[in-house]
């Protein structure tokens, strides 16, 4: 990546896939690492069944606009989001695709693409609903945008106390994604 200290991350897909949550985990990890950061969700009717997205900026300098126009990291979990944002990714950027939900390939040849069948993997491993975290595990491993240790700490903060039992499942999902792109 051209600039490996400033990450402009766009996470997009259907409402209900936990996209805002995965962005939140990244943002918290950034906070724990003392980075400059912003997290901006889409809001309104599109979140209810339509497309949803969130913008996360992690930087070593103060964040100007929190709006990510040209992500250097794109994570997509449905076809319409890939159609919409593929061309916006900066040359040399990375795209993480849930290939169980998106059948087509990325058409650009100036970006690095990782296809992870995360929804299918989640279902097979009994981690239904955690496809977002599988893809996030791949994203964090390949970009190095935050450290793996802080990611675990961040998860503890983001998962509400009454759902603490979900921590291990989330950690397994992150590990699965990492292993998949390591292989």
């Amino acid at each position: 990546m051209a600039d490996n200290t400033n990450y402009e991350i766009l996470i997009a897909g259907f409402g209900g896939q936990g996209l805002l949550f995965s962005g939140k985990v990244l943002a918290y990890a950034g906070l724990l690492e003392g980075r400059e950061l912003s997290w901006l969700p889409s809001y309104g009717p599109e979140m209810r069944g339509g497309t949803a997205n969130c913008n996360v900026i992690l930087s070593d300098t103060p964040v100007g606009s929190p709006i990510v126009e040209n992500p250097n990291v794109l994570m997509v979990m449905n076809g319409p989001s890939l159609d919409k944002y593929e061309s916006a990714v900066t040359p040399g950027g990375m795209i993480f695709v849930d290939s169980s939900l998106i059948s087509r390939k990325v058409m650009r040849d100036d970006v690095t693409v990782f296809y992870v069948p995360s929804t299918q993997m989640a279902n097979e491993k009994g981690l239904s609903g955690l496809a977002n975290m599988i893809l996030l595990g791949a994203l964090v491993y390949k970009t190095g945008c935050v450290k793996e240790e802080t990611l675990a700490e961040a998860l503890k903060k983001v998962i509400p106390a009454r759902k603490a039992q979900l921590f291990d499942a989330n950690m397994s999902a992150l590990a699965l994604g990492k292993e998949y792109v390591q292989a």
């Binding site: 950061l37 912003s38 901006l40 809001y43 929190p66 709006i67």
Partner: peptide
């Protein structure tokens, strides 16, 4: 935007 965004 200011209402919805998160920052430290």
């Amino acid at each position: 935007t200011m209402g919805q965004m998160m920052e430290p």
